[in-house]
Design a protein around this nucleic acid. Structure first.
Length: 269
DNA sequence: TTTCATGTTCAGCA
DNA sequence: GTGCTGAACATGAA
């Protein structure tokens, strides 16, 4: 589930339903999802409450009334689930029991991680995360990408350069920017980069506004067509795949153009 | 049965 | 240091 829009939706969900309630007990069912010792997690949360919740890229931070912040990453399949007795989700790995509800890290693949940090800044520094994709200014975005090498798609997904964009939204941003995902970053013009920044913000915000429910996204979005042989919502041509940054990339070669090497005649635009 | 999956990290190599 | 590739992690769904 979780790229920036999903995690922002999780943030709001927790903010609306899991703050300022004392944690009676913390139950660890699968310690593999912990980045700290289970005893430490229990000690830090027992009797405390979550005061506030913040997000940086795909990472969530829950402020503890005791001290510091719980760090919460959702991996590929994790999500927070708040439930009452008898409504337990299918894959609860860690559970925070409040007096009248329970907040669970529900995660079949267990690739998510829960840990602790004294400050958000310290955590962001330690993980070397770039600026949040919805906070980064246009000029900072241009500067950070202008200095990159390699293909544009892996650059967009590099959490050290900028945090929050993953496989699905990188493909969508490039589709809407009409840029071939294999294009060398160094061949993009300032206008290309500014357009990417604008499209990225629009796509991420629309997703948050629609509650990350893909069925409520415009039909013109590529993400409805992430199947081999699907037709492009723009031109009706065939959507193709290529592997970039180790991930399957969907794109329309007819709509998304590359950028010719400098000095070369024709090509591009 | 096989393949793929909205993520991160690490080893090995250029 | 930068970038790329492949593997590992662990499991469900198609």
């Amino acid at each position: 589930m979780p790229e920036l829009p999903e995690v922002e939706t999780f943030r709001r969900y927790i903010e609306a339903g899991a703050l300022c309630s004392p944690i009676r007990r913390t139950e660890v069912r699968n310690r593999i999802v912990l980045a700290i010792a289970p005893e430490e997690l229990e000690r830090r949360t027992q009797g405390a409450m979550f005061r506030s919740v913040r997000r940086h890229g795909k990472q969530l931070f829950l402020e503890l009334s005791s001290c510091g912040w719980l760090t919460w990453h959702f991996g590929m399949t994790g999500e927070p689930v708040l439930f009452m007795d008898g409504e337990e989700p299918r894959f609860p790995r860690v559970l925070f029991h409040f007096p009248d509800a329970t907040l669970a890290h529900d995660d079949p693949r267990m690739l998510g991680r829960i840990g602790w940090t004294a400050t958000i800044e310290e955590f962001v520094r330690r993980k070397r995360l770039g600026p949040d994709a919805l906070s980064i200014s246009r000029s900072d975005f241009v500067e950070r990408f202008a200095g990159a090498r390699g293909a544009v798609k892996p650059a967009l997904m590099d959490q050290h350069r900028m945090a929050g964009v993953g496989n699905i939204y990188a493909d969508e941003v490039l589709f809407q920017s009409r840029l071939d995902p294999r294009t060398e970053v160094g061949r993009l013009s300032r206008q290309d980069l500014e357009g990417m920044h604008r499209n990225m913000r629009r796509v991420l915000k629309l997703s948050i506004d629609r509650g990350t429910d893909f069925s409520r996204f415009p039909r013109s979005y590529l993400l409805h067509h992430r199947r081999r042989g699907a037709s492009c919502p723009g031109c009706g041509g065939t959507v193709e795949t290529v592997t970039l940054g180790g991930r399957t990339t969907y794109f329309c070669p007819a709509c998304q153009m590359g950028r010719a090497p400098r000095r070369a005649a024709g090509g591009g635009r």
